[in-house]
Structure formats: structure tokens, C-alpha cells
Design a protein around this nucleic acid. Structure first.
Length: 834
RNA sequence: GCCGGGAUGGCGGAACUGGUAGACGCGCCGGACUCAAAAUCCGGUGGUGGUAACACCGUGUCGGUUCGAUUCCGACUCUCGGCACCA
């Protein structure tokens, strides 16, 4: 019995409770069914759920529930990306331990999640700050170390000289530390790296296997990896025994070099500045800038002659070596050759410092080299023996010359750099390394894992907390058993999120990182998350998957088969944020309208990949629709129930749809047409139009009781059947989006025991048949009339019918027909002239 | 600066492979119900002109390809995401 009142609160909480008690979404490996692993990027437990989360997880749930209706064995887990900077900030601000703060946040957010009614298998919940989780990434680190994939080198960090702390890029505002306000300095410290560049080629070529990924994401990754073919060139440096190495893709312009530019962090820069106060000051100024590429690329280009010179490998001339603030130490070897005539950036720099601009490639038309660099192709000039060669040929010729003189070689270079994984922070996974003054760095023995992060810790405002804990860092060397110290740096938190998807398959496995269950569930069939992760997270996870594969832990090359990158949730056209005061609390909305309404609005308001503009009015519209659905069910529950019981008892009368009234046939056609479109849109994940189709379906079904039946019993049976079919299709199509209301109505209208065991509707092709079809008539490309012609009418018939149309005739008066284009079943365009 | 997106009525958006621009919803206007309001229901709703039939204009800007362009190509403007230590 359905009440008139749509009491969503009681209905939703009762259902959620029963789903949880019956563990209906807990799954295990089942070889008799096709598996479907649906995963959305796990959240950082910031403390409260925001609309961006809601959108992400609802999108994922719609896909998961749809796949379930298709009969698949669906896994949808949830966990917490629990390590990270905000916990330490909160710890300082509120004087609580990061662990306490984090676990409290997790508890709160889990509750918030549950009232959204998402079909999670909560038994697989993971928090990455749990030693049972990070144990295995420490283990993997050791395995990678043993395999030679880990090394240590110096690299640059943002240093706050007042707080004596390393700052994240986001903690540097206008070149100053966010708390102290001190000018940051670039500082070199030793850090651990993973050789992701060993996998650069595979990460690049395997992008071609990712047919289910958005093209834009693949393009971004391709450009990020940045494979380029070129030449490594070695320049001998005057009065120095160490040569300068550079990489260039323009070896053809070698004779046009004006200077070599090195990074202020280059060892040669230090040597040059040794007895030169002016250079020392210059280098110091260069280092007073945030160590991010975006900042380096936008600062004013500055340089200073180092006084050192290098020898040109062909002409043997001396070339000045400049120290330039725009050269990245991390990229290539921290040095570049500068050809102002043929490179925009070099041109700008040379113009500023009056360095020579020497053209070596001849443009086809006249060119003012003082104004612009010429980056196109042409024949070589001013290049001695290489003159008149076309510049592409010259690349090979010059490179071959360099090879034969032992000062160059062909090289494939990647923009991608090795992954620096050390963080000078407390709230992260301890790096399992022990430093022994006699034996050097040693990995922690496997039997001593995990290296547990002490949790009950006060976070100092300056420096790293682990450095203040002798009980943590004092230890013995695993090799010589003498006194030794532990590494106090922790892992980059991208490590945790690079393999969690696999751990969900076997989170209770405490003897190994992964087991065969991971081979069953991975790769993830559908991954959903924000576009902001298009490069870093997704590239690191792809890399880790290949590492796991090489250790035999998974048996696929790529972790995520299909990827959906959802857009942001905006309000008043800007990102929702606390500081702007334009946030919307999901809990308040669920209280007021119910989870189904919020879910429906999130899906309906925008296509998944685009940003979603929040609208309170729109939410009310979504709620209105669900209430209309409810009231319709309330009103016709008796009819629907009767039909349902007859269907169950197999006692229905069969209907010859060719004999029903044209209106009834039309309604049936509309229902299946709408479902066909919804089915197609669901497959291509255009979920907003699926939601729209549900609204249209209700509009169509609502017309059925209005159809005249005039005491005709047969017509009444047909109406009843139409109502039943239509409503049954609607409930199942809507179920992934609004699972509570559809679940309740399905059961109480006698459609079946539970919609969770129902199957996705099927299209009745005979309903879509049509004898005649509307064809658009255009004159000179403008729509002028619609005509009705037989289905699949020939071009001639369409043309004749169109030309015979009285309205069309008026457009053709006193004109001559130049051309007629006919698209069968669709359109005819008559091109006329005077 | 570099890489990758986006721009369609008053608003969110639709238009599948180049073929009726504006589906569906919101808002607004008018009507029904009501003492009244809310809720609900019915009708209308891109702009300009016209009593109307209808005509012209219209998918960020400028240009191109085509019988036909929101869709393809070129240039530009604004805007969003990323740039390796926010996650």
C-alpha cells in the first residue's frame, strides 16, 4: 500500500539500514559472472563532505548500479586517502594529533556517505594511514630498491629560513612563506627518487591501449612525458676539466649558438661564483623564487655572464656561458644551448643582453632577425661545410659529425623526470631506510616491517616532528648492528593513491601486498574522478601498476580501462569554497529533500565531464519530479498491482500491438524510443540526458489514463498493459539515479521482490516500427516544411512529394532549381537560383 | 609562459556520424483551484518587426570549407584545469 505522502526520510533511512544489514553490496569473486570494478577516486578526509564529492560518488554509483542491472558482479569500494598536509596544519591550529584529527574526520564523513545511499561494499574500507596498509608500500619500496629502481640525489625544495621548514608550493605565496612571511629560498637537499623514466616509453606507448580514456587526458599525458628525438652535445669548458652537456632537438642550428645558458643551481655556476661576489649575489636572487615551473616560466628572464667560456665543437670558437634564471636544473642537465635567431626564448634573452643573433637557417621570405626568431624550415647558411643543406638533413649531418668527433650522440629525451618521493613531513608513510655511518643507507629488513609512524605526537610549528623523536629514529644498522638512525622523511602521498585500487580487492590479506583476488578484480573497469588528476595521480598509478605487474602481483598492463573525468561543482560561476562563503552542505539538502533528490539533481544538471552550476531552484525541480512520480504511483497503484499479479501468475492476455488504436501504438513507440535513447546515453555515460529521459517517460506515461477507451474492454486491457510496461521501464531506468524511491515503488507495486535483482529493460524493436516518416524540406538550406512519406521512401518519391507541396511551391515560384539533395528518412534540400 | 578543456535563450543544459537550433528542467508571464496565500494543475515563453499568416536575425568574435556548420578548418577574445611538495 502506497501512502499519498512521499515520506522520503523514513523511506530512505529504512532502506539504507536494510541494505546494510543484509550486506547486499558486499561481493566476492564469482567466476560464473562477468566482473565489473567501479571505482571513484577516494577522498582526502578533510572533515566534511562537499558537493564535489557528492557528484563524484553519485556518478560512480549510477554506473555501478546500472552495471548491476546488466547482471554483472559489481565491486564498488570506498576508502580514505588519509595522509597529507592538512592534518599537520590542523594539528598546529587545534593542538590535536594528526591521527586523532584524521580518524575523527573519517568517522564523520563515513556517516555522511551512508545517507547518500551509495552501493558500497564497506567491508573493504581502507584508510591509508593504517600500518596494515602502508606496510606494503614500504615493502614495495624495498623490492624496488633491490631492483635498482630507487636512488638518492640532491634536489631543490622551498625553504622557509624563519620557520626552518620545507614548504609545499601552495604554502609559498608571492615568493614568501605563508606563515612566517619570509622570502623563501631554493635549497638543495638529498632526496629519494623512483626511476619512473625507465618506464617512460611504455607509459607513452600504452596510452594507445586506453580506448576508454578521454582524448584530452591522453594528450596531456603524452605531452607531459614529452618524448623528443635529438642530440646530446658535449662542450669542453675552458679552464675546467668537466665538460658541459646539453640536449637539443635543433642540432641543425649548432652554428648559430651565441651562448650557453646554465641554471643558477648548476655546479659550474657555483664554481664561477666562487671568487665573484656579484655572481654570488645574482645566484642568490635567482634562488629567491618558488621552485615551480609555472613561476619560473613567468618571471622576468634574467642572466649574467659567468665569465667562463666553452669551446664550440665545430668552429672551435669560444662561447660565453651565461647563468640564466629560466633554465631548470631538474630538466635535462640544467644547461641549454642558445640560438637566438631560431628560438623565441633565446631571442628575448639575447635582445635584452645584446648578445649576437646569428641566422643559420634561411627563411623563404625576407625576415627581420632583430625582431623575431625564425623557427621554420629552410636551407642552412653561415654554417661552413653544412651550408645549403636543408635543415632537416643538416640535423643528421651535424649529429654525425659530432659523433665522429666524440662530442655528441643521438638521444631520445623525455620531459618526464624521475619521481622524487621524499617529503620532510610527519604525517606520511615512513621511508624504510636506516642510515649507518659505516655501512651507508640500508633498507629495513622485511621482517621488521612495517616501520610504524608514532601517532601520539605533538606537531612542532617548525621542522619535522619525526626529527624530534629519538625513540623513532634511534635504531641499529641491520648490517653491522652498530648504532644507526632512521630516515625521518616520509613518502609523497601520491604513493598511497597509486595502488589502493588493487588493495581493495584483498584488504584483509596480511601476509602479502596483494593476492590472486587482485588479479580477479583488476584492472578497474570504470574509474571516475576530477580532471585535476589528469596527469600526476593517473600517471603515477599507471606507473605503479606496471611495477606491480613486473613483480607478478597483477596481470594487466594498465590499471584503469575506462576513465571518466568529472567537472567541478560551481556556485555563482566560481568554485565553492569556505572563504567565498558559497558552500552548500549536502547534509542540509538531504534533510530537506532526501538523497534521491540530490542524486537526481547532480546527474541531471550537467553532463558528467562539464562543470556543474549549483541551483537551489533546480534541486526543487528534481524534488518535484520525484514527488510527481510518487503521486502517479499512488494514484494508479491498484491498476499496476492487478497487472503485476497477473504477470506474476502468467495469466495475462497477449496483445496484438498491430491491432491497438493508433494513439496507443504511438505511446508504446514513444516509450521505447525514449528508453532506446536512455539506454544509448547510459552506455556512453551521458547521464544527464538519461535523467531527462526519465522525466520525459513520466510525461508520456501520464498521457495513458487520458486515452479514450469508451467502455471498450480490450482497449482498457491495452491501457493497463501500457501503464505497466511504461512504469516498469521508468523505474528500472531511474533506479541507478534514484535508488530509494524506485526500490520502494518496485516492491510495493508488485513488479518483483526487489529491484536489486531486476534486469535492465530490453527494447521491443517492433514497437519502434513506423509506416510513415516525417521528412524535413529545406529550400536553400532553410527549413520550410515537413512532409510525410512512407518509411524508407526512395529519393524520387521524397523529391516528388516535396515539389508537389503547396507551401514549397510558393518558394519555388519564378526560381530555377539548381540542385536537389535528399537524405533518405531525414531531409531534402532544394537549392534554387533566379 | 607552456600543455589541455570550455563558451548555445533570463538560467542549467539538448541536438548521436555535417542535416528541423533551444529537448528536459528552472525562472518568468497568463489562467484554474482558494476568502487569501502556498502547494498543485493547465497554457505560453530565443530576439526583432507584424493584429495575424509570416519574415528577418540568432550557438563567444572574425574569416574559410559545404547544397547545408553549434558540429569541420584557420586566427582571436574571455574563462577554467594542470605545470612535478594541495589532494
Amino acid at each position: 500500500m502506497i501512502e499519498e505522502q512521499y515520506n522520503f526520510q523514513a523511506l530512505e533511512s529504512e532502506l539504507q539500514q536494510s541494505w546494510e544489514e543484509k550486506r547486499v553490496f558486499a561481493v566476492s569473486e564469482d567466476l560464473s559472472k562477468e566482473k565489473f570494478y567501479c571505482l571513484s577516486m577516494f577522498p582526502y578526509p578533510s572533515g566534511y563532505l562537499h558537493m564535489g564529492h557528492v557528484r563524484n560518488y553519485v556518478l560512480s554509483d549510477v554506473i555501478a548500479r546500472y552495471q548491476r542491472l546488466l547482471g554483472k558482479n559489481v565491486l564498488q569500494p570506498m576508502g580514505w586517502d588519509a595522509f597529507g598536509l592538512p592534518a599537520e596544519n590542523a594539528a598546529i591550529k587545534h593542538k590535536v594529533a594528526p591521527a586523532t584529527w584524521t580518524y575523527k574526520n573519517i568517522d564523520h564523513m563515513r556517516k555522511q556517505f551512508k545517507i547518500l545511499g551509495i552501493a558500497y561494499d564497506w567491508s573493504r574500507e581502507i584508510a591509508t594511514c593504517n600500518p596494515k596498509y602502508y606496510h606494503w608500500e614500504q615493502w614495495l619500496f624495498i623490492k624496488m630498491y633491490e631492483k635498482g629502481l630507487i636512488y638518492r640525489k640532491n634536489s631543490i625544495v622551498n625553504w622557509d629560513p624563519v620557520d626552518q621548514t620545507v614548504l609545499a608550493n601552495e604554502q609559498v605565496i608571492d615568493g614568501r612563506g605563508w606563515r612566517s612571511g619570509a622570502l623563501v629560498e631554493q635549497k638543495e637537499i638529498p632526496q629519494w627518487f623512483i626511476k619512473i623514466t625507465n618506464y617512460a616509453e611504455e607509459l607513452l606507448t600504452d596510452l594507445d591501449k586506453l580506448g576508454g580514456w578521454p582524448l584530452q587526458v591522453k594528450t596531456m599525458q603524452r605531452n607531459w612525458i614529452g618524448r623528443s628525438e635529438g642530440t646530446n652535445i658535449v662542450f669542453a669548458v675552458n679552464h675546467d676539466d668537466k665538460p658541459l652537456k646539453i640536449f637539443t632537438t635543433r642540432s641543425d642550428t649548432l652554428m648559430g649558438i651565441s651562448y650557453l645558458a646554465i641554471s643558477p643551481n648548476h655546479t659550474l655556476a657555483k664554481k664561477a661564483a666562487h671568487n665573484n661576489l656579484e655572481l654570488q649575489n645574482f645566484i642568490k636572487t635567482c634562488k629567491q623564487v618558488k621552485a615551480s615551473e609555472a613561476d619560473l616560466a613567468t618571471i622576468e628572464k634574467k642572466g649574467m655572464d659567468s665569465g667562463l667560456t666553452a669551446i664550440h665543437p665545430i668552429s672551435q670558437e669560444n662561447i660565453p656561458i651565461w647563468i640564466a634564471n629560466y633554465v631548470l636544473q631538474e630538466y635535462g642537465a640544467g644547461a641549454v644551448m642558445a640560438v637566438p635567431a631560431h628560438d623565441e626564448r633565446d631571442h628575448e634573452f639575447a635582445s635584452k643582453y645584446q648578445l649576437p643573433i646569428k641566422p643559420v637557417v634561411e627563411p623563404k621570405d625576407s625576415w627581420d632577425f632583430q625582431q623575431h626568431a625564425y623557427t621554420g624550415n629552410g636551407k642552412l647558411i653561415n654554417s661552413g661545410q653544412f651550408n645549403s643543406l636543408d635543415n632537416e638533413t643538416a640535423k643528421t649531418a651535424i649529429t654525425e659529425f659530432l659523433i665522429s668527433h666524440q662530442c655528441g650522440k643521438q638521444k631520445i629525451h623525455y620531459r618526464l623526470r624521475d619521481w622524487g618521493i621524499s617529503r620532510q613531513r610527519y604525517w606520511g608513510t615512513p621511508i624504510p631506510i636506516i642510515y649507518c655511518s659505516d655501512c651507508g643507507p640500508q633498507t629495513v629488513p622485511e621482517s621488521e616491517l612495517p616501520v610504524i609512524l608514532p601517532e601520539n605526537v605533538a606537531i612542532p610549528e617548525t621542522g619535522s616532528a619525526l626529527k624530534t623523536l629519538p625513540s623513532f629514529y634511534q635504531t641499529t644498522c641491520p648490517k653491522c648492528h652498530g648504532p644507526a638512525t632512521r630516515e625521518t622523511d616520509t613518502f609523497d602521498t601520491f604513493i598511497e593513491s597509486s595502488w589502493y585500487y588493487a588493495r581493495f580487492a584483498c584488504k584483509n590479506q596480511d601476509k602479502a601486498m596483494l593476492d590472486d583476488r587482485a588479479k580477479y578484480w583488476t584492472p578497474v573497469d570504470q574509474y571516475i574522478g576530477g580532471i585535476e588528476h589528469a596527469i600526476l595521480h593517473l600517471l603515477y598509478a599507471r606507473f605503479f601498476h606496471k611495477i606491480l605487474r613486473d613483480f607478478g602481483l597483477v596481470n594487466s598492463d594498465e590499471p584503469f580501462i575506462r576513465l571518466l573525468t568529472q567537472g567541478m561543482v560551481l556556485k555563482d560561476s566560481t568554485k565553492m569554497s569556505k572563504s567565498k562563503g558559497n558552500t552548500v552542505d549536502p547534509n542540509d539538502l538531504i534533510q530537506k529533500y532526501g538523497a534521491d533528490t540530490i542524486r537526481f539533481f547532480s546527474i541531471f544538471a550537467a553532463p558528467p565531464e562539464q562543470s556543474l552550476e549549483w541551483s537551489d531552484h533546480g534541486v526543487e525541480g528534481a524534488h518535484r519530479f520525484l514527488r510527481r512520480l510518487w503521486l502517479f504511483a499512488f494514484k494508479y497503484q491498484q491498476t499496476l498491482n492487478e497487472e503485476g499479479i497477473m504477470q506474476k501468475n502468467d495469466s495475462t492476455i497477449s496483445i496484438d500491438w498491430d491491432k491497438v488504436s493508433p494513439e496507443q501504438r504511438e505511446i508504446r513507440k514513444e516509450i521505447y524510443q525514449l528508453f532506446k535513447q536512455a539506454d544509448f546515453d547510459m552506455q556512453r555515460l551521458q547521464l544527464n540526458t538519461v535523467a531527462a529521459a526519465c522525466m520525459k517517460l513520466l510525461n508520456v506515461i501520464a498521457k495513458i489514463p487520458e486515452l479514450k477507451i469508451e467502455n471498450d474492454q480490450e482497449a482498457e486491457v491495452v491501457n493497463k498493459r501500457l501503464l505497466f510496461i511504461g512504469f516498469s521501464i521508468l523505474l528500472r531506468t531511474l533506479n541507478p539515479i534514484a535508488p530509494h524511491i524506485t526500490h520502494y515503488l518496485w516492491k510495493n507495486l508488485n513488479f518483483g521482490p526487489t529491484i536489486l535483482k531486476a534486469s535492465w529493460p530490453k527494447i521491443a524493436n517492433n514497437a519502434l516500427r513506423s509506416d510513415t516518416i516525417q521528412v524535413v524540406v529545406q529550400v536553400n538550406g532553410k527549413m520550410r516544411q515537413q512532409i510525410s512519406v512512407p518509411f524508407e521512401a526512395s529519393k524520387e518519391v521524397i523529391e516528388q512529394t516535396a515539389l508537389a507541396d503547396t507551401k514549397i511551391k510558393t518558394y519555388l515560384q519564378n526560381k530555377s532549381i539548381k540542385k536537389v539533395i535528399v537524405v533518405p528518412n531525414k531531409l531534402i534540400n532544394i537549392v534554387v537560383g533566379d
